[in-house]
């Protein structure tokens, strides 16, 4: 089974090579462009723009998850994929994992460029503090880790919503596009509503506190939000795999 899962995962990565390299090239290109802008914009403004791809990547990750499923029908490869002796959950799981792998690599590439910019600040005479000398470094790292994990989980949750919505559209023979759009809106609404209820139910879940972070004394992050996203993702994954296995046709 793991051999089949790995083969599917590699297939997904192989199929995404061109789009992945294009986005990676754009991120690197932006880095080079910003280097040339330092003299006119100033160092800190150019440095700030190195984070710009992160905002784009959040949406790109979710769109990619949708596109990777849609392409199977658009390119006419769905009959072959679905004729393989693997479950719908394996198909959806490998697609999600491949998209997430690409997303993580692209985020890391963006952050590497930002880090290189930061490390090179003295070259442009910018006021600069070594990372190790930043005040409350541990709290900052903790905050970035928790914030990053939440964003990553959010991307996964958005991805599975778009995949499920697309597949629900595929379960009907007519107006599948309209059904997919309606399913997307419905699923986002349902997820938001259930989140509100579940966060209240899980109010006993502990909070993570960040002390002396920038201007605030204590910044709290409730783990209930994180748990709710995990629960919702797990449920939606189960449903999406089932729809892929039992309901769609090709």
């Amino acid at each position: 089974m793991s051999k089949m899962f790995f083969a599917l995962y590699r297939k997904e990565l192989g199929g995404a090579r061109n789009i992945f390299l294009t986005i990676l090239g754009l991120i690197l290109g932006l880095g080079v462009f910003l280097l040339t802008r330092i003299s006119t914009w100033g160092y800190w403004q150019a440095f700030g723009f190195t984070f710009l791809p992160l905002a784009f990547l959040v949406f790109w990750g979710m769109f990619r998850a949708f596109a990777i499923v849609r392409e199977e029908w658009k390119e006419g490869t769905a009959p072959f994929l679905r004729s393989l002796p693997v479950s719908g959950w394996s198909i959806i799981g490998t697609k999600l994992l491949a998209v997430f792998t690409e997303w993580v690599v692209l985020v890391l590439a963006t952050l590497t460029i930002s880090a290189l910019f930061y490390a090179a600040a003295p070259l442009w005479g910018a006021e600069w503090v070594k990372l190790a000398e930043l005040p409350n470094l541990v709290e900052r790292i903790k905050f970035v880790a928790v914030f990053g994990a939440s964003i990553a989980l959010g991307v996964l949750l958005g991805s599975i919503i778009f995949q499920l919505a697309y597949l629900l559209g595929r379960t009907v023979n007519r107006f599948s596009g309209l059904v997919s759009i309606a399913a997307t809106i419905g699923l986002i609404y349902l997820t938001a509503k259930s989140s509100e209820i579940l966060v209240r139910w899980l109010s006993f879940a502990p909070s993570i506190n960040f002390i002396n972070l920038e201007s605030v004394d204590i910044f709290s992050f409730t783990t209930a939000t994180f748990l709710v996203m995990l629960i919702e993702f797990a449920l939606l994954f189960l449903v999406t795999g089932w729809v892929m296995e039992k309901r769609v046709e090709s």
Partner: peptide, 28 residues
């Protein structure tokens, strides 16, 4: 696992090579 279905139209991935496809199918 016991069935080989060969569609009338090409349903294989355009970006794969012939050998790549055979190895892929062999995995399953």
């Amino acid at each position: 696992k016991r069935v080989a279905f060969l569609s009338e139209v090409n349903t294989y991935y355009d970006w794969m090579t012939v050998d790549g496809l055979l190895n892929f199918v062999k995995s399953f």
